[in-house]
Design a protein around this nucleic acid. Structure first.
Length: 500
RNA sequence: GGUGACGUGACCGAGUGGCUAGGUAGAGGUCUGCAAAACCUCCUACGGCGGUUCGAAUCCGCCCGUCACCUCCA
């Protein structure tokens, strides 16, 4: 499949033409949410970016299998032995079954993703549903000599692994420097042979409520294992693209690579590692732990203290796409406001497309070559940005350049005589595809139907008062088509749904 | 301390050795009953100091500032 898409690979630190391992199939894995609390805006960036990526890959003709997991187990609160699941902690605090907590936030997450226009992943595996796969992987790693068991817990042996592999190759760290920085943390990690070792399986203390049986006793899987196990199950030992937030690069993705190399996978999991940058508020990263975040619920409802007005999901999506995914984005009211206007401009362009037609009886110019070339150049420019490491910011900028041209034609349809029908069709089709299919921007209805209905009834009453019965009948008929019947009562005009 | 990223016009935000980014805001104009939208024109910036070069915002060095990762985080 010929295409000019290049992607930046964190592993190699450079851009390279994207070549799938098994074209036309493309496997994409994105580290998904830990469902123990409300998702915030920062959590939305990765899904939006990778939604655009998978949409574009499909547009290019690939058959994509997009996997995005849900983490509903694991993730210790701290590295110390008495560490606890975030989920378990939340569940205990709310007197709930841990899975209730997970389900609640998973549902909300799905709702928010849909609002943002993200297509659902093809497979959305849950860590809790893949305990056996994780146990199998641990057994492989132990058999290969890269993990050891202590008191019912299993740890990955980083120093041993590093002797034959390169631990830290993704995040560009070396083990000696890491060790130097962790020396004073040795206390409280007595089970580990090295402070760099990480848990593959943790023995569950009696009060730990999320637990599964394993060859090492009752416990639960380590924080990094699920992604290795589930990506392998659904995408194979080696697949095309693995994504996640920049903050997952170390240690999460580094550990994933180590686990896959140390198990029977013997690969880096994916050919291309992609990392989206962070979203900041007031210049600092949005983060659950620091409390510096805006939840999607608050953002869409306008109930966050950080902002004084409502911003709709599509405006937020557009706002995110106006920046390149590897750049940090700072959320400000001014920025969102500017994005809202830009988004609406793009949507107005969408509505213009159908109106772009040469008026009846207008003669087509004999030579449309020049104008055709101009239009095609503007269209092609939109793809140049996308192809350059999914630079949606450049794509959007090019779309505005194209839109200006189209608006020009729209203001004076007769000037369409200068372009050929073919070039016009190509252009409008590309605009539509870019905006809706690839960038995933949908036209959010702004008007409230009931308000419009009241407006119509107002005119109905005016017509009636003026005894303009032709107009009255016309309005009645028009509303009937919409399934609305007008009711003249003694109290005034009212309406009801037609029962026909 | 280690690793990495970044500092662009009023704001947001691309790009990059010579060629218009774009959006928002602002100014003027066309159109319009008045508007709005749209279109045209203008506002032309790259933290500081050196260096390389015919030419640097773009490469190199130093300095200043900001941020991220090194503990869970998208």
């Amino acid at each position: 499949m010929e295409h000019p898409l290049s992607l930046y690979n964190t592993l190699t630190r450079r851009k390279a033409p994207f070549e799938p391992l098994h074209a036309p199939f493309v496997g994409v894995y994105l580290c998904g949410p830990t469902v123990y609390s409300e998702a915030h805006l920062g959590n939305a960036r990765g899904p939006v970016v990778f939604d655009v990526l998978t949409r574009y890959l499909r547009y290019l003709g690939y058959t994509v299998r997009y996997v995005r997991n849900i983490t509903d187990v694991g993730h210790l609160e701290s590295d110390a032995d008495e560490g606890e699941d975030k989920l378990a902690k939340k569940a205990r605090a709310q007197q709930l079954e841990p899975m209730q907590v997970a389900e609640t936030y998973a549902h909300r997450y799905h709702h928010h993703m849909a609002q943002l226009g993200n297509l659902p992943p093809d497979i959305e595996p849950r860590a809790s549903g893949h305990i056996t796969e994780q146990i199998t992987m641990i057994e492989e790693i132990i058999a290969n000599g890269f993990a050891y068991e202590v008191n019912g817990s299993v740890y990955f042996d980083v120093p041993t692994y590093n002797e034959s592999h390169n631990y830290g190759k993704l995040s560009n760290r070396n083990i000696d420097e890491l060790l130097a920085g962790t020396r004073d943390n040795l206390a409280g990690q007595s089970e580990k042979r090295s402070p760099l070792d990480f848990a593959l399986w943790k023995n569950a203390s009696p009060e730990h409520i999320m637990r599964w049986p394993s060859p090492w006793g009752e416990g639960f899987p380590g924080w990094h294992l699920e992604c290795s196990a589930m990506s392998r199950k659904y995408l194979g030992k080696e697949f095309d693209i693995h994504g996640g937030g920049l903050d997952l690069m170390f240690p999460h993705h580094e550990c994933e690579i180590a686990q896959s190399q140390a198990s029977h996978s013997h690969t880096d999991e994916s050919q291309v590692w992609m990392h989206n940058n962070m979203i900041t508020v007031n210049g600092t990263k949005m983060s659950k732990s620091t409390g510096n975040f805006i939840t999607l619920t608050d953002l869409f409802a306008g109930t966050t203290e950080a902002l004084s007005q409502v911003f709709s999901p599509m405006v937020v999506r557009f706002f995110l796409l106006q920046a390149h995914y590897r750049s940090p984005v700072d959320v400000t009211e001014d920025g969102l406001q500017a994005a809202r206007k830009g988004y609406r401009k793009l949507m107005n362009g969408l509505r213009l497309l159908d109106k772009l037609a040469l008026p009846e009886g207008t003669e087509r110019a004999p030579d449309t070559e020049k104008a055709d070339a101009e239009l095609r150049k503007l269209t092609a420019d939109c793809f140049v940005g996308l192809n350059d490491d999914l630079n949606t910011a450049r794509c959007v900028a090019s779309l505005f350049n194209l839109l200006r041209k189209l608006n020009g034609y729209g203001a004076n349809l007769a000037t369409l005589a200068n372009v050929s029908e073919a070039a016009l069709q190509e252009t409008t089709a590309a605009y539509r595809a870019l905006v809706t299919d690839i960038l995933g921007l949908a036209d959010e209805p702004r008007a409230d139907a009931e308000q419009l209905l009241h407006l119509t009834l107002h005119f109905y009453q005016e017509a009636k008062a003026a005894k303009d019965y032709a107009k009255v009948d016309e309005i009645r008929a028009a509303l009937k088509e919409q399934g609305i019947v007008v009711k003249d009562t003694k109290a005034g005009v009212d309406w009801a749904y037609s029962e026909e």
